[in-house]
Amino acid sequence: MSHLDELESHSIYLMREAFHAFERPAMLWSMGKDSNVLVWLAMKAFAGHIPFPVVHVDTTYEFPEMLDFRAWAKEHYGLDLIVWVNQEARARGIGYENNDPVTVTHELKTVALQQVLAAHKFDALITGIRRDEDSTRAKERYFSPRNSDFEWDYKDQPPEFWNHFTTEVGAGEHVRVQPLLDWNEIDIWRYLEREKVPLPGMYFSREGKRFRSLGCMPISKPVESNAATIADIIEELKTTKTSERAGRAQDHHERNAMQKLRAKGFM
């Protein structure tokens, strides 16, 4: 059994445990590479039928190409897709034109997520976060409880071992289920390559640039790259030492921005 097989099977195990344990689970989907691995794994876990809604928190600053991909993938996988926009914040004029990236991310992602969670009474959110993305994520559990204010009590996390998890929540609480926690960036690419998982084209080099990580249009910057295939990308990652989210402005706007976002409930 290869490392990828091991990661795949464990992720599938986690998704099935989540589906069994919770009454109203949902899966977050951003159309990004990790998200697409998540959808792919869910298709495998449930033998070709994802038995819970897939939620896209739409900031309204999405790349048009990503929206095309969203429409295509919804049909292709037969997703029960919920698209959610924080209309209230947009009506107030919250946006990159008027606000800093941390504020926008908080309003259009975190608050939007709170809204969709409340509207659909989800008790578990399956997310695609990985430990290697950001150092604050290094401490995460596979099943990570959040209180009704979305807060993550990282100082007193429940024990988690031998494939036993926190599977019950109180009223208003939910659990973040994180099947990709053990994957790193290169595992994701190797898996995408092995499984031939469909991806948006923006990850691949066009005119010497490609996106390594995709977020909102105004704050996602491409990196210099000639990697036109997944194999090229894997070669490139072997030598790079810049961090994956270096192109994401909200992480760097101020010191510890990521930590602040996460304490408020961002993924």
Partner: peptide, 27 residues
């Protein structure tokens, strides 16, 4: 520094740090 522990006071929890040698990958 890697864990930003000093700055953020999130100490004392399980953390995972990857590294590799020419012969194998470790976490």
């Amino acid at each position: 520094a890697l864990l930003e522990e000093q700055a953020q006071n999130i100490t004392m929890d399980t953390t995972r740090v990857p590294f590799s040698t020419p012969r194998r990958a470790f976490t």
